[in-house]
């Protein structure tokens, strides 16, 4: 077993964390929620759904997935990558917040942005692709690249064509593999029997 094979073993053990399809379902649901936002008259009605989706993700992961797959603590480099990926997800939010604050303080830049919407329209989908590409590389889960592209296209269609259809199609496209993976996962890893639980100490 060469060091490379050991690295492969570690990578495959790590990637098994994403075999349940929940991450895909979480992101796909967010896209579908965006689409719903364009359908319902009041966007605020959807806020509870946002928290419900995130809450459901956490509960299903803890109650359904982890008892079936078990838990491993990975070595420091892997944990650092995980922290970096969280930071990468938070970075666009902070950047967006900073832009909002700066443009509200400085009227000319706000006016300039309004006069040149193409800057925002191009920058936002590009940022989505970059963030998810970084996330896919850090987490070493290649399908996140594809999810990033679908999300960027959905946002692009919304910004350029003023149509929420991209969110609907994108949401369905991301959710379908998630459902397939979750179904396969539940089939492959049934809950432990009381006897098995005994052995698991």
């Amino acid at each position: 077993m060469t060091p490379n094979r050991l690295a492969d073993l570690e990578r495959s053990a790590w990637r098994s964390n994403f075999d349940d399809g929940l991450f895909d379902l979480l992101l796909g649901s967010m896209l579908l929620l965006n689409w719903l936002g364009s359908v319902v008259p009041n966007n605020r009605l959807l806020y509870p759904f946002f928290f419900a989706i995130v809450g459901a993700y956490v509960v299903v992961k803890r109650v359904v997935v982890l008892p079936r797959t078990g838990v491993a603590r990975f070595a420091a480099p892997r944990r650092q990558r995980k922290v970096l990926s969280m930071a990468l997800l938070l970075a666009p939010l902070l950047l967006g917040l900073a832009v909002m604050v700066l443009t509200s303080l400085d009227g000319t830049s706000a006016a300039w942005l309004r006069a040149h919407p193409i800057v925002f329209h191009a920058a936002f989908p590009l940022m989505v692709v970059l963030v998810f590409s970084g996330l896919a590389s850090l987490l070493e889960v290649p399908r996140i690249h594809a999810i990033g592209v679908i999300m960027a296209l959905a946002f692009g269609v919304d910004l350029w064509r003023d149509s929420a259809t991209g969110f609907l199609i994108g949401g369905v496209l991301v959710c379908i593999p998630g459902i397939v993976l979750l179904t396969r996962f539940l089939h492959r890893y049934p809950p432990l029997t009381p006897e098995e639980r005994q052995h698991a100490r």
């Binding site: 797959t69 070595a75 052995h199 698991a200």
Partner: peptide, 27 residues
């Protein structure tokens, strides 16, 4: 040993799932 070598720690269920061993055998 190989799985424990590449992780900091793991529980019984994780090792059983990764190695394909039954929990009794693993234990």
């Amino acid at each position: 040993l190989a799985y424990l070598f590449v992780t900091d720690s793991a529980d019984f269920v994780f090792l059983a799932r990764q190695t394909g061993l039954t929990l009794g055998n693993l234990s």
